[in-house]
Design a protein around this nucleic acid. Structure first.
Lengths: 202, 202
DNA sequence: CAACGTTGTGTACCCTCGTACACATGGGAT
DNA sequence: ATCCCATGTGTACGAGGGTACACAACGTTG
């Protein structure tokens, strides 16, 4: 089966190392040499598998995105359940992601935001954004889904930029406003932890 | 006084150059040498005025933040007017900022987001965030203000990351949900001109 | 007026980076 | 078995980076 000296595991190890490096020193600290050292492979190996750093970044971002997807898979079962409170589910999920692996979340965001300046990263960033929107759009309309993603992005950003703690109740409250906005007044079927009618503001 | 050779204008020119450099090549392309070249000053001059690059970044971010403040000053007169539709005002303002000077907006965001990894930048980023929140909080409660800022951040991020156009109607719509959410379960009038009573929760 | 120290400038050093390229290895075709 | 080339590795080179430090200019002070 083909693989004579071809070693896919090596490539994977380099990506893992790249993610660790970015996590530890940021994208600014990423270089062929630093990943090579971290992955314990020769310099030539990194340049062989990834002609340019952008290629490596793309692979890293792609893999990092799996982090959130994994959280969704593990904790997001109720997401698809039409009976569940979508805003509460999302708030809980975001919390699980943020608190469960904060460095990982920071890393994913750094990679994600890097797309701002690196055209090579844009497609994969956009793709991820689209996927999440799609996921949420199964429970509402597309406009609401997009706005929800934007809001989550903003909330996470504030948390990460200020280094503060994630406030799930707050997130739930404001997410509910965006999500329930279009069909306002209609009480939600499931009470959950909070009142279906949000009457108090923080 | 007595500053015959003391030249504050020189320092300012370096900051301006740094902003131009970041705008053109991103933070990754920023170095003492590149700013020196851009500002047409000797290399030693940049290191003299800014011991470290972070210092320069801080100054640049601080000045870049003025960009949005300026837009607020010029186009945000109605912001303070309690009779105006806050969501509409913010949507308009954001559009003016985004479309009026897109490269500038990109640059400000890059600087702003850089705080994620550079502790030195966090205080000034947080400060700016706080200022905007404060500004909006004059028209609503703090929780709503914070959420509004988060949403605007997220929307801008989506626009900038995808390179797409800013949709003011969309922004208005979702901003209204967050802003008007707390006080009423009543459906918003689709005609956005008829501004429903804003008003604070509490 | 002259010496001195603060302020500003120019240069040189050493480091790390990406890239190029010569060299090793081993499976598959003949 | 032998040759070939995709696969993988090690090293050297030029570019550009931050920093250190010697030097120039000028205000101050005795």
């Amino acid at each position: 089966m083909a693989a004579r000296r071809y070693d896919p595991e090596r490539r994977q190890r380099i990506i893992d190392a790249a993610i660790r490096v970015v996590g530890a020193k940021g994208i600014a600290g990423l270089s062929h040499r630093t990943v090579a050292a971290e992955a314990d492979v020769p310099l030539g190996s990194t340049t062989y598998h990834f002609k340019t750093l952008d290629d490596l970044l793309v692979a890293a971002l792609r893999q990092a995105n799996e982090g959130f997807a994994k959280v969704v898979r593990e904790h997001g079962g109720a997401l698809a359940d039409p009976g569940a409170d979508l805003a509460a589910e999302l708030a809980r999920l975001t919390g699980a992601w943020l608190d469960g692996d904060r460095p990982g979340a920071e890393l994913e965001y750094e990679l994600y935001l890097a797309a701002l300046r690196r055209p090579a990263l844009r497609p994969v960033a956009a793709e991820w954004c689209e996927q999440v929107t799609e996921l949420i759009a199964r429970r509402t309309d597309r406009v609401t889904a997009r706005a929800t993603v934007a809001l989550i992005d903003g909330v996470c950003l504030q948390v990460l930029l200020t280094g503060g703690a994630y406030d799930e109740a707050y997130a739930h409250e404001v997410l509910a406003r965006v999500i329930d906005g279009p069909q306002a007044g209609e009480p939600r079927p499931d009470g959950e932890t909070g009142s279906p009618r949000r009457g108090r503001a923080g």
